[in-house]
């Protein structure tokens, strides 16, 4: 393809505009978090902190229960990831390899569940959790998050298990190994990349969930990060600096994760879409 110099320049300008639009809100958040209190209310707003002020970061962690939110989110998201991936690697293997009736029905059921709007199940789930004494607990959220991430996780892993060549299993079978043994010793290690990809996706979904976290865990001590951020504004003050600082802290690990595992995430996300 021939390209004139002009069109190359135009192309790079387009790329730059896209990048600026994507990055700008983050830039704004970061400088807001570093602005000293007296600069926060300037009109027009300043585009650079008049002096670097770390008070907002300190306040987010000391005067507000932000550390608690982080801890809660970590517990819930990590447990959900572990539980969902554990449960669905069995299911995914069975669906990919073993022969039994109703496999397609199960996959179809999972797919339709993935389309459920959360609001359609939140009221009875709230009542069930209340009955089981699981409101304001980690278990209630973990259970719910595991369930809502199972469909995605199950599809991903099933697809992934199918891509693993059958020869190795066949060889193991010839040696007389049971399907279960084959699964643990041969398939799982081969599937590790797929499991890892799935785990990242489940983790992000659980880390970001809002509706159930908002309705189930109403005590401050059990709030997760997304709810904590949404509820940050107090009764009488608007702590823009503090919220910005808190958001920067929340976003950083996600950015690092995305940059590190970018390829995996994209392949996990697109696996379903591209193959139909």
């Amino acid at each position: 393809m021939r390209k004139s110099k002009l069109s190359t320049i135009v192309f790079y300008i387009c790329v730059a505009i896209f990048m600026i639009i994507i990055v700008f809100p983050f830039y704004w958040q970061i400088i807001t978090s570093l602005k000293p209190p007296e600069q926060l209310w300037d009109i027009p707003p300043g585009w650079w902190p008049s002096r670097f002020y770390l008070g907002s970061y300190i306040a987010a962690f000391t005067q507000r229960p932000f550390l608690t939110y982080l801890k809660n989110s970590a517990i819930v998201a990590i447990s959900t990831t572990a539980f969902a991936v554990f449960v669905t690697s069995f299911a995914g293997y069975a669906l990919a390899r073993l022969h039994f009736k109703g496999k397609n029905a199960i996959l179809a059921l999972a797919l339709s569940v993935s389309m459920f709007p959360g609001i359609a199940i939140v009221s009875p789930l709230f009542l069930m959790m209340k009955q089981w004494n699981l409101l304001n607990s980690y278990v209630g959220l973990i259970l719910t998050y595991t369930t809502i991430t199972i469909p995605l996780s199950m599809w991903n892993l099933t697809t992934f298990f199918r891509t693993i060549p059958a020869d190795m299993e066949e060889a193991a079978k010839v040696d007389g190994a049971s399907p279960f043994y084959t699964f643990i010793r041969i398939i799982l290690p081969l599937a590790a990349p797929g499991i890892f990809t799935t785990a990242i996706l489940v983790f992000i979904a659980a880390w970001n969930e809002f509706l159930f976290a908002l309705t189930f865990n109403t005590k401050d001590a059990l709030r997760t990060v997304p709810v904590g951020i949404a509820m940050f504004p107090g009764e009488y003050t608007l702590p823009w600096g503090d919220i910005s600082a808190a958001s920067v802290v929340v976003v950083l690990p996600l950015i690092i994760m995305v940059l590190l595992f970018q390829q995996r995430i994209v392949s996990g996300l697109t696996a379903g879409a591209v193959k139909g």
Partner: peptide, 11 residues
């Protein structure tokens, strides 16, 4: 409890 009235109500 959380600072906002609305949130305390929920809790």
């Amino acid at each position: 409890m959380p600072p906002q009235s609305d949130q305390q109500h929920n809790a």
